[in-house]
Each structure stands twice: as C-alpha cells, then as structure tokens.
Computed example of a mutant assay.
Amino acid sequence: MSKRSKLIALSGLGALALAASLNAAAAQPLSVVELFTSQGCSSCPPANANLIKVKDQPGVLALSFNVTYWDYLGWRDTFGKQEFTQRQVSYEPPLGHDGPFTPQVVVNGHADVVGAAPGEIEHLIAATAKTGGPSLSLGDGKVSIGAGAAPGGKADVWLVRYAKGVVQVPVARGENTGRTLPHANVVHGLTKLGSWTGDATAYALPAAPSGLTTAVLVQSPGGGAILAAATN
C-alpha cells in the first residue's frame, strides 16, 4: 500500500471513529433534572443558581418549573402556571412527601433533593440511574417513539417548551423584594401529546413558538419514572 493510500485509509478510519463517537453521544440517555421553584420563595435562589451550574453538562436536560402556590405572599410569579404546580403535586406521593415545597429538584422522575446546597444536584444525578426506555427522536415535524416495554402497560408523552439559557428576573414585592433572580431553561408550556403503550408510535410535533426549545418526555403516569427524553 502506498503512503497516500495509507493516509486515506487512516483518514477514513478516523472519520468512522468520530461518527461512532457522535452517534454514541446522541444515543446517550438524558438525565432529566426538574427544579420546582418560585420567585416568591426566599429559599429558592440558591437552587436556581445550582441548576445553572448543571444545565450545560453532557447528558443533562435541566428544566425550571415555576409554581404558583407562593403567589399569595405578595409577588405573582411571572413564569408560574397551575399545570406546573400540578406536575409537582403528582410527584409528592411516590417520593414519600405529604405535599409540594420549594425548592425541590426531581431527577428522572423518581428521586428528589432540595437542591439548595452546593453539589446536591450533581450528587443526585450521579446516584440516579437512567431508566432504560424506548428510543425517542424529534425531527421532520414529528415525535418518533420506538417499540419496547411500557411499565404498567402505558406511559404519558409530554411536550415541553422552554427558553434555553439564563434569564434575570427583577422581583418588586414579596420575600425577594429588590432582588434580581436568575432562572435557567424556564419552562413556558407543558402539554400531554398522548400515550405510549409499547408499540412504535409517532405524534405530530407542532412548531415551537419563537424563542422556545422543544423537549419530549415519555413518563410513567402519576408522577412516575421518566423512561425517555429528547430535545432539539
């Protein structure tokens, strides 16, 4: 083999290795980290800051869900929605809690921590196994879910719209009066697309509103484990 042929062969092998590495990274299951927070909660800013630290880690999908039950303290959360509060409420019985509280970080739908202390979120991510679930991809205007075993025979398919990055929110009243609070990957929309029963399934994926990123979660009902997650 000539020197030129050897170089071409080595170059081809390098490209294949790189492609394999990229495919493996793309196939890596995501750890879904959900922070339930409120702009009216004086205990929440440290957890907000800790979520910012993990949001860009490989294999992590970090999401901020702003809840509404502290609005009565004098500041109406500018991102709060009742459906986000209800999502948190559904987690509490399986996690062994009597009711919702802030801040709370839930990882992969089946383990939680307050998240305000340094390193808490990172430790929970490392300690929480990613549940083996179906293949999940977004593209060509649809959500594609592969065949597999659906625990209990059925899972929910959730469409999440969030603003990727960090936004600073000035708070004029309530417990955080005068503070400007950072929020990472704020969720603006949560919609149930349908169900997955173990058969290969596809759903139409509506175009995202301007400025928002899409994530899809396949999750056991009633605040159960997240079986698969994908984002674009």
Results as ranks from 00 to 15, higher is better:
K3G: 11
R4G: 04
K6R: 14
I8M: 08
A15E: 09
A25K: 12
A27S: 10
Q28H: 06
Q28P: 01
V33H: 10
F36H: 08
Q39L: 13
S42D: 15
P46M: 05
A49Q: 14
N50R: 14
N50G: 11
L51T: 08
I52V: 15
K53S: 14
D56P: 05
Q57P: 01
G59E: 14
F65D: 00
N66F: 07
T68V: 15
Y72W: 04
R76Y: 04
T78Y: 04
F79S: 10
T85R: 11
Y91C: 01
E92F: 13
P93W: 08
D98L: 09
D98I: 05
P103G: 03
P103A: 04
V107K: 03
N108E: 11
H110W: 02
A111Q: 10
A111R: 11
D112N: 04
V113N: 02
V114Y: 08
A116F: 00
A116Q: 03
I121P: 01
A126K: 14
A129H: 13
K130N: 12
G139Q: 09
G139K: 07
D140V: 08
A147E: 10
P151I: 05
P151L: 11
G152V: 09
G152N: 07
K154F: 10
V157I: 01
W158T: 03
L181V: 13
N185A: 05
V187I: 07
V187T: 11
G189I: 11
L190Y: 00
K192D: 11
L193V: 08
W196D: 07
G198I: 07
A202M: 05
L212M: 13
Q219R: 07
G224F: 02
A225G: 05
I226R: 10
L227F: 03
A228P: 09
T231I: 06
N232T: 12
